[in-house]
């Protein structure tokens, strides 16, 4: 198992190279000049050129990229062009907001979608199933930004229960963005849970379990659902890693000080180091989250564990 985890972490290294190079090259070719943006409009061409030289912008792309990567492996993600702030520090400062929001949102997703998915599957083709399915389709179709705005309008502006924007009021400020992020995820996961459970519910081994005299409830929960967990965990895992990279739209609606906002700001201001840093760090986080999900599989399904341990 440890060997497997170690292997997966090693695979991260080429992945980081690839992602960072793509982002680096793209940012380099993007229209606009970071130096010009940085120094302002009152500078002469000479001064700009001098600044450019100073920041190393005149070196060839590969040289700059090499220099950047050397820094990364020492834990130095460079300094943002704007404000001259340490990129890693800036990222880590924003990260808790996004992580906490992601955790709350995935929690919300799971407690909604798993029970509804199970009920819909068990009551397949009844009106309950129809209502849950219709609800799930609706949840999937509602655009996040619209839902966010509506929630803010009703619960913050009209009723005043929650803050309108920002993350300054503790748990209260987390609730609306978490719900906004969670609705689409919960809808998808409800459908996933339903179909995955319907697959296992027809399996022969459930007949064995029922013939043993186990109650229907336990048959569904201990055996059918347990076997249906793999696809559910896959979807929930990728949803969670998606949440961790920060939702740009929802963070924007709620003026959330998270990773999404940081990344968008960096790109908008042509802040090459900050944008590349955000991309690389987010890649790492996503990869590690997915690794954790894969490790969780081993606990869900012994056959997968056997693959990992090479038994």
């Amino acid at each position: 198992m440890l060997k497997y985890i170690f292997k997966r972490i090693l695979i991260l290294i080429p992945l980081i190279f690839l992602v960072s190079f793509i982002v680096f090259a793209l940012m380099d070719n993007a229209p606009g000049d970071p130096v010009r943006t940085l120094v302002g409009e009152n500078m002469t061409e000479e001064q700009i050129e001098q600044k450019r030289e100073e920041l190393g912008f005149n070196d060839p792309l590969l040289v700059r990229y090499g220099r950047y990567m050397k820094g990364i492996f020492r834990g130095d993600f460079g300094k943002s062009i704007y404000g001259n702030k340490d990129v890693l520090k800036e990222y880590l400062f924003r990260l808790p907001y996004t992580v906490k929001l992601a955790l709350l949102s995935i929690f919300f997703t799971l407690i909604i979608s798993i029970p509804t998915g199970i009920i819909a599957a068990v009551k397949q083709n009844t009106w309950i199933d129809a209502i849950f399915s219709a609800g799930a389709i609706m949840g999937l179709s509602i655009p996040g930004f619209w839902l966010g705005l509506m929630l803010v309008l009703i619960f913050s502006v009209k009723l005043g229960w929650f803050p309108v924007y920002g993350a300054d009021e503790g748990l209260k400020s987390y609730i609306l963005p978490a719900i906004t992020l969670g609705v689409a995820n919960a809808s998808l996961l409800t459908r996933m849970t339903r179909s995955s459970l319907l697959d296992t519910i027809r399996q022969d081994y459930l007949k064995t379990v029922r013939a043993k005299g186990l109650s229907e409830r336990k048959t569904i929960l201990n055996h059918a659902f347990r076997n249906a967990l793999i696809p559910i965990a896959t979807i929930a895992g990728s949803q969670f890693s998606g949440l961790l990279s920060g939702s740009i739209i929802v963070e924007n609606v709620f003026s959330w000080p998270g990773i999404g906002t940081l990344t968008v700001t960096a790109i908008r201001t042509h802040d090459i180091t900050l944008a590349t840093g955000c991309a690389v760090l987010t890649t790492m986080f996503t990869a590690v989250t997915l690794l954790i999900v894969d490790v969780l599989y081993a606990f869900i399904d012994p056959r997968i564990k056997a693959q990992y341990t090479g038994k």
Binding site: Y205, T208, A211, S215, E216, P302, R303
Partner: peptide
């Protein structure tokens, strides 16, 4: 249902046709 569950496996039990699929793979 409850009385049935007490009978199943206890007084009347069943061996199914295909052993490949009649055991729960995760236990």
């Amino acid at each position: 249902d409850k009385q049935l569950q007490q009978i199943r496996g206890n007084e009347i039990a069943m061996v199914f046709q295909d052993p490949m699929t009649s055991l729960d793979p995760v236990y």
